[in-house]
Design a binder for these strands. Structure first.
Length: 150
DNA sequence: GCCAACGTTGGC
DNA sequence: GCCAACGTTGGC
């Protein structure tokens, strides 16, 4: 099983929102590197749910992949903010996955705290200017994060 | 293929 | 709201 980290603006979808929904589609990824990571996800993989662009940026909980990557329907929907005029049903370059809620942390693991962890210094997340919204997490990094969440 | 201009991300 | 960093676009 592989581990990942995915960013979401809580106004769009928060860990609490995912908890309420139980499961939902993770769509709207419009960056090729991030999309490639989406496509590399397998059923059962787990991910850190990161809150970005909000008062308290950080890892807010955990989720799990329940459906592997498939064409992202929001790319074809003219009413979606993620609409891509260059995408078509025959040729849709974007992917979505389905995720389910696993755990909401008692406290958000703030970005400042994450940056203090030597075990996490390789993560793109903690690098200045990093905009990658989907990234792999190593087993060692995953353990370090879970240790912080206790 | 280079690179300037532009739009977006995301922390602060 | 500001601004640094980044990815993409498009002229040449």
């Amino acid at each position: 099983m592989a581990y990942w980290l995915m960013k979401s603006e809580p106004d769009e979808l928060s860990i609490e929102g995912l908890s309420r929904l139980g499961r939902t589609r993770w769509d709207g990824v419009r960056n090729y590197q991030a999309r490639n990571f989406l496509r590399a996800m397998s059923l059962g993989d787990e991910f850190c749910f990161y809150h970005s662009s909000c008062p308290q940026p950080g890892i807010a909980g955990l989720g799990r992949i329940v459906v592997a990557a498939y064409p992202d329907p929001t790319a074809l929907d003219p009413h979606s903010p993620y609409f891509d005029a260059k995408a078509s049903a025959e040729k849709n370059p974007w992917s979505a996955v389905e995720v389910e809620h696993v755990r909401t942390f008692a406290q958000v693991l703030g970005l400042g705290l994450l940056k203090q962890q030597a075990a996490l210094e390789e993560m793109p997340l903690v690098h200045k200017g990093s905009r990658l919204s989907v990234m792999p997490v190593t087993a060692a990094q995953w353990q370090a994060i879970c240790a912080l969440a206790r």
